[in-house]
Amino acid sequence: MKNTFTLIEKELRLYFISPIAYVVAMVFLAVSDFLFYNQIQYFSGLSLRMMQFQNHLPELNIHDAVFRPTLFNMSIILLLIMPLLTMRLFAEEKKEHTNELLMTSPITITQIVFGKFIAALTVYSLLLLLSLHVPLMLSVAVEISWKPLFASYLGLFLMGAVFLAMGLFASALTENQIIAAVISFGILIGLWMVGASAHTAGETTLGQVANYLSMSGHLDQFVKGLISSRSLVYFISMTALGLFLTHRVVESQRWK
């Protein structure tokens, strides 16, 4: 536990020394704020028209009209920038030969993997917290239903954990950061789009499997405001799979 904490501290230090965390945060916040802005514009226009037509205050739901589409689109931005948060983690250790230090110190591979994962998850959580400034600002003007918003953010958090675990796995495969990023793009987009094949496969077993594996479907549940145990299990087991694969790869590299 103490060792894992030391490793988390070291990874966080490296995150905030290098410009990566700042650049990722800036791009993420800029793009997601832009999405929010567009959606809010659309929403206020819609509200005005509703007022003209029906001559009374609109009963539009801000969660469904603003947060749901925006947060769902935000997950696509995350899909594109999350590999940048993980690409360095193992690739750089190998390139700088610092893995020789870690692997010859009295710490376990599990501690190393968890240290890196939790550090990345901390940075990601900070990103999500920062993006909360939009709902907070809106809450001054409109009434926001916080419960579905919480469920949405929980969904984004869990989805991010899968992204990070898969990114960590990709980073463990190579000592080149670019290759690590490209591999994790591949894995994440694959997981995202496997749902598309579910449509063509229809109601067959294959279709059901593809549907279950598809990340977008599960995220949609959360973003709707629904915490379903099915999707919870999906996200947690995918994260565990990513971390397990990472552990195996790091362990197997000792034998090469």
Partner: peptide, 11 residues
């Protein structure tokens, strides 16, 4: 252990 390339974090 001092490996051939010293395992350092330049940052």
């Amino acid at each position: 252990y001092l490996p051939e390339t010293p395992p350092l974090y330049p940052e």
